[in-house]
Amino acid sequence: MKVLSEVLLLSLTLFISGCNYSNGQITHPQKTSIDQPSNTNELRSKVKNTEVQPYDLRNSIGQLKTTDDAVKAGKVDIYQKDGSFWYSYKFIEDNGEKPEKNEYFKPFRYSGDGYIVFNLVGESKDFYEVVSNEETGDKKFVKKNSPLFERQKWEKYILDCYAIEFDSDSNPLHSSPKGGNVVELSSAPTLFFPVEISGDWLKVKWNDGGDKSKDENRGWVKWRGNGQMIIRLFETS
């Protein structure tokens, strides 16, 4: 769109300043300034300090996620330990009708739009055991022969994400998955994009200052430490 009026430019300028100082309703995190390195051989990264809530993976053996067929089916069934039926999670109809609420059903990710992602914590001959309520830790069961679910690794889920963030103070960026130098950032990038995983380390790429015209940088950050996921996931842009 071509901006054809100074009025619009003024309006946009006012909005941008409003983002920072207006009535406290906008919640953009503020970027922190970046320290200049005192020694180029021992560089210190300073990314904006993101609030990362560690996620416990100590008992996890992967994920269980819905397949594309689940959307067509319209619902998925969840069972109790004795194999009896517990709950059907229904996806949103095209008419916008919301699924029946169940305050005890709070898996890792879920949306009436057509997906559920469980933390998979066990399996028997016929059932997968999943965390059905992330707040309480309650567990329920999904039939192994259901075509509406598939098992996948956390690594795959992370690499399918659009971007990640991390706390650079407790989890700095390094030049290699074996540690190596801490990588300095010449300016605060806006986003880090996942590239590959080696053990507990995640390779990420970014552009300085978020400017895609600048050279792409790469480094390694820990995605898992002490049995916990210590990065924040942004599944989509």
Binding site: I26, H28, K106, Y110, S111, T190, R232, T236
Partner: peptide, 28 residues
């Protein structure tokens, strides 16, 4: 409505749509 990225309990996180500096600019 406050310029943040949209979210509901259980939903995925957006990197834009109001997270960071892109508020009121992104559409899926």
């Amino acid at each position: 409505d406050n310029g943040s990225d949209p979210w509901s309990p259980g939903s995925v996180d957006h990197a834009g749509h109001g997270h960071g500096s892109r508020s009121g600019l992104d559409v899926d």
